[in-house]
Write a protein that binds this DNA or RNA. Structure first.
Lengths: 233, 233
DNA sequence: ACAAAAGTGTTACACTTACACCCATGT
DNA sequence: ACATGGGTGTAAGTGTAACACTTTTGT
C-alpha cells in the first residue's frame, strides 16, 4: 500500500467557510457576504477564507469569525470537508467548513454592516457561488440533528428569554410546529430552564407580558455532553 | 472578503482512508494493513491511498476498496476530512476518510490475505501510524450513531441470519448487551425482518438449530431513508 | 369591553423495561 | 439423561400526543 507523496502531489489549496446562525426571537437566520474580486464578483457566498498550507483550518475559521463578529469566544463546530473537484479557475480547492451559533446584539449588527454581511432567513437562502448552497444545506441538517439530540440556544438566545422564544427557535430549526403545552412540559421536565421573576412583552401587539426563563448552565453542560432525545412528533 | 488563491497556496496533498467493517457472526471487525516504505515502515494503518489534485477522493476510495475486496459495489459513506496539520515529513496532507460495511465470504478472505490485510476486532484496535486511531474512533462513533438511527446489517450479515446473529451485531456496534425478548420484540415489530423456513446450528456447541431470517429489503430501504430510533437502554 | 397572547391539565395509548422458565436437539 | 443454546409472555411504569378553555393585560 503506497501512501507516500511525491512533491508534485502537493497541488491542492485549502479554504474554510463558516456557516453562522443567529436568532432574532422570531426567525432563524444565517450570514451571507457579497464576494469581491473575480471569479463570481458580486455573488453571494458563505463567509470564507483561504487557508495556507501551514495553517490549521480551525484556527483560520476562528479568526474569520472573530473578524466578522468582533468577538472571539464563539464555539465552532466542524461540519465536514467538501472535497468534490468543483471548478475554481486557479486549481483544486478543498473547503473545510464549520458552523456556529451566535447571539445577536447591536454592537454585532453594526460590525456586520461595516464588514458587508447580511442576515438571511434560513428558510430563504439565495443562490450562492461555488458549492456554498450545498454546504449551507449540510449545515442546516447538522443544526437539525443538533437540536434533536442536544440542548441548543445558549449562544443563540439572549440571557433571558420566554418559552415562546425558545419554542419558536426549535420550530425554525426543525421546520415544524409543536403543541405549546407538550413543548413546555417536556422542556421544563428536562430541568434545562430556570424560571426568573422577570416578565417581558414579547411584541407591540402582545398585551400580557410573558415570563422570562434562563438556562440552567450546569444542566445545559451535562446534557450537551451526554445528549438527550428531544425528537418527537 | 478575499477567497482567491495565488499559485503558491496550492501546496497541500490529499489522501483518503477507508475504514472497512465486517462481521463474522460473533464479532465486529475492521481491516488494517501493514505499511510498506517509509515513513512508519511496518506500522499498522487504515487502508489508504494518495489522491492526486485532479482526482475525486470518493472515486479513489472506491477504487481502493475495490482493489482490497475484489468487488466494486460497496456503499461508501463519507466520514470527514481530517485536516489537522499533523506531521508527514514531506508536507501537509489532508485525509478525506470514508467507511463502509462489507459482507465476508471466502473469496474475499483469500483476496485480503493476498493483499496483506488483516481483520482486527473493533474492541481491540492496535496503535496505528499518523492519526489513524483518531479516524478509527470517529468511524466507530459514526457506526454507533448509524445503528441507533437507521437499519444496519444488510451488507454485513449473510443473506439469511439468526436473530442471535443480528442481536450480537447490534451489541458489538453499540458496546452493550440487550435483553433477548425485548430485542426481538422491537426488531420484529419494525417489520425489517422476514421469517424464513430455514434453520441453522449457530455453532458446534449449539444443539438446537435456530431460525433464519432475512431482511425485508423494501422496508430496509424505507427506514434507511427516513430513519427510525432504535436506541434504548 | 374587547383584543391579543400567555398560560394551564387530563386522558388514552404506545413503548420500554424487567424478569424466568420450557423447548428442541445432539451427544 | 443431560447439556446447550433457542425460544417465548406478562405486568408495571413511563412518555407521547391530542385536545380547549381561562387569565392577564393594554388599548
Amino acid at each position: 500500500m503506497r501512501i507516500e507523496f511525491s512533491p508534485d502531489e502537493f497541488k491542492v489549496a485549502l479554504a474554510t467557510s463558516v456557516v453562522v446562525f443567529g436568532f432574532d426571537g422570531e426567525n432563524l437566520k444565517t450570514l451571507v457576504a457579497k464576494k469581491v474580486g473575480s471569479p463570481f464578483e458580486g455573488a453571494w457566498i458563505i463567509p470564507s477564507s483561504v487557508v495556507r498550507a501551514e495553517e490549521d483550518p480551525a484556527f483560520v475559521a476562528k479568526e474569520l469569525l472573530a473578524r466578522i463578529t468582533g468577538k472571539d469566544n464563539w464555539l465552532l463546530e466542524k461540519l465536514n470537508g467538501f472535497a468534490e473537484p468543483y471548478r475554481n479557475p486557479v486549481g483544486r480547492v478543498i473547503n473545510i467548513a464549520y458552523y456556529c451559533t451566535i447571539r445577536l446584539d447591536d454592537a454585532l449588527e453594526n460590525n456586520l454592516k461595516k464588514e458587508g454581511y447580511s442576515w438571511v432567513s434560513v428558510s430563504d437562502i439565495p443562490r450562492m457561488a461555488y458549492d456554498h448552497n450545498e454546504i449551507m444545506e449540510y449545515a442546516k441538517e447538522r443544526l437539525k440533528r443538533r437540536v434533536k439530540r442536544r440542548p441548543i440556544g445558549f449562544s443563540l438566545l439572549p440571557a433571558e428569554f420566554t418559552l415562546n422564544n425558545i419554542q419558536r427557535l426549535y420550530e425554525c430549526a426543525l421546520g415544524k410546529a409543536f403543541d405549546k403545552r407538550n413543548f413546555r412540559r417536556k422542556l421544563l421536565k428536562s430541568q434545562l430552564l430556570l424560571e426568573t421573576e422577570n416578565f417581558i412583552r414579547s411584541s407591540e401587539r402582545a398585551k400580557r407580558p410573558s415570563r422570562l426563563y434562563k438556562f440552567n448552565e450546569k444542566k445545559y453542560r451535562t446534557l450537551t455532553l451526554k445528549g438527550y432525545d428531544f425528537v418527537y412528533q
